[in-house]
Amino acid sequence: MIDHTGVIVSDFAKSKAFYQTALAAIGYTLIHEFPAEVTGHTDVAGFGENGKPDFWISRGTPNQPPVHVAFRVDDRRRVDAFHAAALQAGGRDNGAPGIRAHFHPDYYGAFALDPDGHNVEAVCHRPMESAQP
């Protein structure tokens, strides 16, 4: 079980705005933000749901190669909404919403590149009939 993860971003304000918009589509909000004066080294922001941040961004030199982060959702419409929101927030398309049968028959995912080129995904693993309320 993963407790939390994160990526390093080159433009903190731009990336924070990107993630606030893109992740809102899957129910995530900005929960905590700490400036370098508090952390002792860099600005950080934590996103999550139900008051628990599990995805963090921090200012610095982005990882090379870029990172891949996938957010699991229970509804295919949220995958679609994430992709649209990510593109609206300035992300670049890296795979439109759809079935990725090479992973498994019900793998419904969408991919966007964040401002630093990190591959961010929303994925629903539920069969079509149970993935839509």
Rank of each mutant, 00 (worst) to 15 (best):
M1R: 10
M1V: 11
M1L: 13
H4G: 00
G6K: 09
F12S: 07
A13Y: 00
K16V: 03
K16I: 09
Y19R: 01
T21F: 02
A22C: 06
I26W: 00
I26G: 01
T29R: 01
T29Q: 02
L30W: 05
F34T: 05
F34A: 05
F34R: 07
P35D: 05
P35M: 02
A36R: 11
A36V: 08
E37H: 00
E37M: 03
V38A: 01
T39L: 00
T42K: 08
T42R: 11
V44P: 05
A45H: 09
A45W: 03
G46H: 06
F47N: 03
G48F: 08
E49W: 01
P53F: 06
P53Q: 01
P53K: 06
W56Q: 01
R59E: 06
T61N: 14
N63Y: 14
P66Y: 07
P66A: 12
H68C: 12
H68S: 13
A70Y: 10
A70Q: 09
F71H: 06
D75C: 13
R77D: 15
R77Q: 15
R78I: 13
A81R: 14
F82K: 13
F82P: 10
F82G: 07
H83I: 15
Q88R: 12
A89F: 09
A89P: 04
G90C: 10
G90Y: 03
R92W: 00
D93V: 07
G95N: 11
G95I: 10
P105G: 09
P105H: 12
D106W: 15
D106P: 02
Y108K: 10
A110I: 07
A110L: 08
D114T: 04
D114V: 08
P115V: 14
H118R: 06
V120H: 07
C124W: 08
C124P: 13
H125V: 09
H125S: 10
R126H: 08
P127W: 10
P127E: 12
E129I: 03
E129F: 02
Q132A: 09
